[in-house]
Amino acid sequence: MTDAAAPTTRFSLRVNNDLDLPTLTGLAVAAEEAGIDQLWVSNDLMLRSAPALLGALFERTTTLHLGIGIMNPYSVHAAEIAMVAATLQEQSGGRFLLGLAAGSGEFLSWIGIDQPKPLTGTREALRSIRALLAGDRPLDVPGAGEGWTRDAYLRLKPIQVPIYIGAMSPKMLALAGAEADGVLALLFPPEHFETASALVAAGADTAGRRLADLDMPACVWLSIDEDRERADRALALKLAYYGAAFSPYLLARAGLAPEDFGPAVDALRDGDEERAIASITPQMLSLGISGDPATVIDRCRALQRLGATHLSFGPPLGPDPVASIRLLGQSVLSEIRRPA
């Protein structure tokens, strides 16, 4: 009797929607050539439109699955999210992935939109969007929210679109496990995967599902370069800008607090990026994965030992993102795909 074959590891990239189309196209082409399975583009407010960007990228790629990570039902109605999803899935021939979450309350406040009951709002949107894509009426679906009438249905053929929930809180992770096709959970540090996946698994169990029934990428920040110091500097600058805004709960798991990033914030206010980079400690760097290929492989292997079968790499990717993607393809992915 032989053991069952180990699951094949999949890979994805996550990038921000501040990139212009030529730059993003270069990244997408490099990702496809490197053997990356998915590319996710954020849809943060006041930047470029992710649906428009993906519409163009589908014309420039052939195998890469492209996702919006994420759309929210507060600034865009669930009906319009379903329209976007159906159209992009039709255009791409089945390569579109929809990321759905409550969104950033801070960003929504910029445009005067409240975010009441994020968990309920996300659950209702998930159920109503899924109903619309299936050719059904949200009015007939329990828990799909109020305000729908008999006329609220898509005048299109039913189409299947995988829906991933963007989640960090225990309740949102449990919702993803119970109802979604996948979950996008940012991991600071990467080893938080063990806790997050357990919460998703518990949610799946309550719904009679298994963790294996959905796609749970281990979403980490990555910076890779042949020169380890260059890689560390790129991640340090990213942490200097964003570290103070990380969840105190997640930072505490790494022995850190938001105020630890105060010196970096002060340096950036003074316009001194070099001082900001210097203020990022090795403990802070451990919130992401950075270094040369051998170092990156070791951290990724640790995630595989925790059960991760899908590794998702987010910005900065490296000092030169396109070169970093190529280095991933040449030196890392094939190694990680082999059984340890």
Rank of each mutant, 00 (worst) to 15 (best):
Pro189Gln: 02
Leu19Gly: 05
Lys117Ile: 00
Leu100Arg: 13
Met71Cys: 08
Ala144Asn: 11
Ala204Asp: 01
Ser334Arg: 15
Gly208Trp: 01
Thr25Gln: 04
Ala6Pro: 02
Ile336Tyr: 02
Leu187Asp: 06
Ala234His: 01
His310Ile: 11
Ala257Thr: 08
Leu132Gln: 12
Tyr74Phe: 08
Ala34Met: 13
Gly318Asp: 06
Gly208Gln: 03
Tyr249Asp: 15
Ser169Val: 10
Ala178Trp: 05
Thr2Phe: 10
Ile81His: 00
Ala218Thr: 01
Glu146Cys: 03
Asp270Asn: 15
Arg326Glu: 14
Tyr241Arg: 15
Ile289Ser: 06
Gln91Phe: 00
Ala6Val: 05
Leu139Thr: 04
Ala85Pro: 13
Ser75Cys: 05
Ser104Ile: 13
Gly67Trp: 02
Gly288Phe: 00
Gly121Ile: 14
Ala302Asn: 13
Tyr241Thr: 12
Arg48Tyr: 00
Tyr249Gly: 15
Ala176Ser: 12
Lys117Glu: 08
Ala31Leu: 02
Asp18Pro: 02
Asp270Thr: 14
Ala125Gly: 12
Pro170Leu: 05
Asp3Phe: 07
Arg137Met: 12
Pro22Asn: 11
Ser75Trp: 04
Thr149Glu: 06
Ala152Pro: 10
Ala152Trp: 15
Ala30Met: 07
Ser49His: 07
Ser75Val: 02
Glu335Trp: 10
Ser169Tyr: 03
Ala278Ile: 02
Ala254Met: 07
Gly69Met: 09
Asn43Trp: 03
Leu64His: 03
Ala257Lys: 13
Ile163Asn: 07
Leu287Ala: 04
Gly271Asn: 06
Gly262Asn: 06
Ala174Gln: 13
Ser75His: 07
Phe107His: 11
Met172Gln: 09
Asp136Arg: 15
Ala212Leu: 12
Pro258Phe: 01
Arg305Lys: 13
Arg269Tyr: 10
Phe96Gly: 11
Phe96Tyr: 12
Ala201His: 02
Leu333Asp: 04
Ile36Leu: 12
Asp292Pro: 03
Leu333Val: 07
Ala244Arg: 14
Arg130Tyr: 01
Gly177Thr: 05
Gly208Ala: 02
Ser42Thr: 14
Asp260Ser: 07
Arg299Tyr: 00
Gly99Phe: 02
Glu106Ser: 15
Glu32Thr: 00
Pro116Thr: 01
Glu80Ser: 05
Pro7His: 01
Arg10Val: 04
Gln89Phe: 05
Gly26Ser: 11
Gly135Trp: 06
Ser75Thr: 08
Leu47Ile: 14
Ser42Asp: 14
Phe107Asn: 13
Ile336Thr: 03
Arg230Asp: 01
